[in-house]
Each structure stands twice: as structure tokens, then as C-alpha cells.
Simulated assay, not measured.
Amino acid sequence: MMLSMQHKAFALALSLSVLAGCSSTGDTMEDEGYGSDVSAVDQEGGSTVYGGDDGSGVSSTGLTDSERLEAREQAQKAEAAAMRKITTFYFDFDTAEINSESRDVLIAHAAFLASSPRTNVRLVGHADERGTKEYNLALGERRANAVQRFLVVNGASRDQLETVSYGEESPAVSGSTESAWAQNRRVEMIFQ
């Protein structure tokens, strides 16, 4: 959870810096010696990249509906592929409930598994050091089983999934702080 909050904070800071860098001061580029032939957006609403009057650029106004649809599908595939790079899912203290932040990523994994029936995954459940060893083994198992059920409900085959629990025995981070514990409460997906 702490890691996802850090990602959100980083994304917000990055967005604000991009927004600040794109803000206009009202100055024209002619004042800086660029000339009047530089144009980022044409007046009909399309944009031109590296283009000029000779039509050598790439323009969004020249795309057909099928090309736009194909570009949208390619973007969705790229987004799903990027989501599938996330293979560790974190849990709140003493629970096996899947966080809302993890759901879209798990859905992308389930779709991939449904389309790749020969791909197998081991779901490894973990817990932080608080609680007895027996309790933490059971909690890690409940977490792995929760991820397994979620994947199956969203299209993966149960035959593709194996669950195992290490409880507190394999921490990702050493230490007895809330930050360390948060990183140790997890399920890892290991593709085989």
C-alpha cells in the first residue's frame, strides 16, 4: 500500500511538472528567433508533427476510422502488457481482501492467461512477521487463494494456477516498521 502511495505521489509530481513546463507565458516564438514557420497545431483542429507546408509530417487529420481503431487497440494492448509487468500484489494488515488498486492489473493477467492456456503461474502468499508462524502461513495461503479465485472468475483456468504460502518466512524487506511490514504482506505471481 505504501508503495502504491509512493507511485501515486510520483505520478502527481510528474504531472504537475509537465503541466508547469507546458504553461504559456504569452511570449511568441518569433521573439526568440524561431521564425514564423513553426506551428504545433493547425487551425482545422488536427495536429502536425515535424510537418511543414510540404506535407512531410504526420497529421492526425489524415487517419481513417479503421486506422484510429487499430491505433486504439494497439494502445490498449500496450497498456495491458505494461500492467502485466506488475506481479506483486499488496494487502492490508490481517486481511486477504484484494485492494482496488490491484484489480485492473489482475484482470489484465487473467485475460492473458485465458488467451495463453499453456502458461502456468505460481501464486506465492506472504505475511509480515506479526502473529504466530502457523497463523501467518494460513494468512499467506488465504491471500494466494484470493488472488487465484479472482483470476479464475476473470477468465483464467484453475489448472494454470498453483498456490503456496511462505507466511513470514520469506520477507521482501527486513525490519519491524510499518513500511517493511506493508511490503511483506503480498502475493507474488511467478510465471512458469
Rank of each mutant, 00 (worst) to 15 (best):
M2A: 08
L3M: 01
Q6W: 01
F10H: 00
F10W: 03
L14E: 11
L14H: 10
L16K: 09
L16R: 14
L16G: 09
L19W: 03
A20Y: 13
T25H: 04
G26F: 08
T28P: 03
E30N: 06
D31Q: 11
E32N: 08
G33C: 01
Y34A: 10
A40F: 15
A40C: 13
V41A: 12
D42Q: 10
V49L: 15
Y50E: 05
Y50H: 08
Y50M: 10
Y50W: 08
G51L: 09
G52M: 01
G52N: 14
G55N: 06
G57L: 03
V58T: 14
V58H: 10
S60K: 04
T61F: 13
T64N: 07
S66M: 02
S66R: 05
E67L: 02
R68S: 02
L69V: 07
E70Q: 12
E70W: 04
A78W: 12
E79Q: 13
A80T: 06
A80F: 05
A82G: 02
M83N: 07
R84K: 08
I86M: 05
I86D: 09
T88V: 15
T88A: 13
F89T: 02
Y90G: 10
F91P: 00
A96W: 06
A96M: 03
I98M: 06
S100M: 05
E101S: 08
V105D: 02
A111D: 08
F112G: 10
F112N: 04
F112A: 09
L113V: 03
L113D: 02
S116M: 08
R118Q: 11
T119L: 11
V121Q: 03
L123S: 07
G125W: 00
A127K: 09
E129D: 11
E129R: 12
R130G: 00
G131T: 04
T132I: 02
K133L: 13
Y135K: 11
N136A: 05
E141Y: 00
R142M: 06
R142D: 05
A144V: 00
V147M: 09
V147R: 06
V153T: 15
R158P: 06
D159S: 12
L161V: 01
L161T: 05
T163P: 02
T163V: 10
T163E: 06
T163C: 05
Y166E: 09
E168G: 06
E169T: 10
P171E: 04
T177F: 06
E178D: 15
W181I: 03
W181N: 14
Q183P: 00
Q183R: 11
N184Q: 03
R185P: 03
I190S: 05
F191R: 07
